[in-house]
């Protein structure tokens, strides 16, 4: 049987998620034997045309050109996998969805007319059908390898729906919110990172995005009880996964001054 054909595509992003594949130092060469890496521009000059069995897509959609390119990638993909917060939720650059795009262009570039961007930063799922998601900023190497292994042997990938709190307990880390009163998004954030932030004595900032049915309202109220202003609570939700629906709604709810803008 022919090896499955793998492609890696990038849209607006930092390269960190596709780099995670090259950071699988122990597994990279074995993986390259198990699949045919047909298109992975960051790693290879060889760019084979589709169709591809599995396409990993990093980045968010921020320009008309990217919309068209993503649609073409979708046509070539049997299984399209959004990797990382930019692809699954728009990423940190989606913060501009709460601001005026023209004002942003003028703030950064002296000749804004050269710069063409969409009014809103979009996750892949706003433009095409996405078959699977790997969360995180960046994604977890362990989850990536598990996903690829699952595809190779035809089992269901293990996708956690529980919160970072569960991983934090399993890791034996001290709860930063209970012990030190530090605001932590762990209770509403999807597991996968291994609870790195609490283990490093700081609150989770939600880079794996919302878990299934997160109780953002109760957590935000708890942050307020710990002494945070409603503005600060809004900013906590408006981070790397600001545009993921439950976090966007929570951010809007706690934002004081710009709540009318919606």
């Amino acid at each position: 049987m022919a090896r499955p054909r793998l492609a890696v595509y990038k849209f607006s992003s930092c390269d960190g998620c596709q780099l995670s594949l090259l950071d699988c130092e122990d597994e990279l060469l074995a993986l390259a034997g198990a699949v045919e890496i047909a298109y992975f521009l960051e790693a290879s000059r060889q760019a084979l045309p589709g169709p591809y069995d599995v396409v990993l897509v990093e980045g968010s959609v921020t320009t008309e050109e990217e919309v068209e390119r993503l649609k073409e990638v979708r046509r070539q993909a049997k299984l399209l996998v959004a990797i990382g917060a930019c692809a699954t939720a728009g990423g940190i650059q989606a913060l501009r969805n709460w601001a005026d795009a023209d004002a942003f262009r003028r703030a950064v570039y002296p000749t804004p007319g050269y710069i063409r961007t969409l009014d809103r930063v979009r996750p892949l799922g706003d433009v095409v059908l996405v078959d699977a998601e790997l969360r995180g900023c960046p994604i977890s190497k362990r989850q990536l390898l598990d996903f690829l292994a699952a595809v190779l042997i035809g089992r269901t990938p293990r996708m956690p729906a529980h919160s970072v709190c569960t991983e934090c307990k399993r890791r034996g880390a001290v709860c930063v919110m209970v012990a030190s009163g530090v605001p932590c998004l762990g209770p509403v954030t999807q597991a996968g990172c291994g609870a790195i932030c609490p283990a490093y004595a700081r609150g989770c900032y939600g880079c794996f995005g919302p878990m299934e049915r997160p109780n953002t309202g109760a957590l935000g109220d708890r942050f307020v009880a710990l002494g945070q202003s409603r503005d600060e609570v809004a900013r906590a939700f408006r981070g790397i996964n600001a545009y993921a629906l439950p976090f966007a709604a929570a951010g809007d709810r706690f934002a004081r001054s710009d709540i009318e803008e919606g």
């Binding site: 320009t63 050109e65 650059q93 501009r96 942003f104 262009r105 703030a107 570039y109 900013r235």
Partner: peptide, 19 residues
């Protein structure tokens, strides 16, 4: 350079130093 801009300088305004 067709990597689209992500406007970091703009959205960092008003954020905390740790951000």
């Amino acid at each position: 350079i067709f990597e689209p801009p992500r406007f970091f300088e703009a959205f960092l305004r008003g954020r905390t130093a740790q951000d």
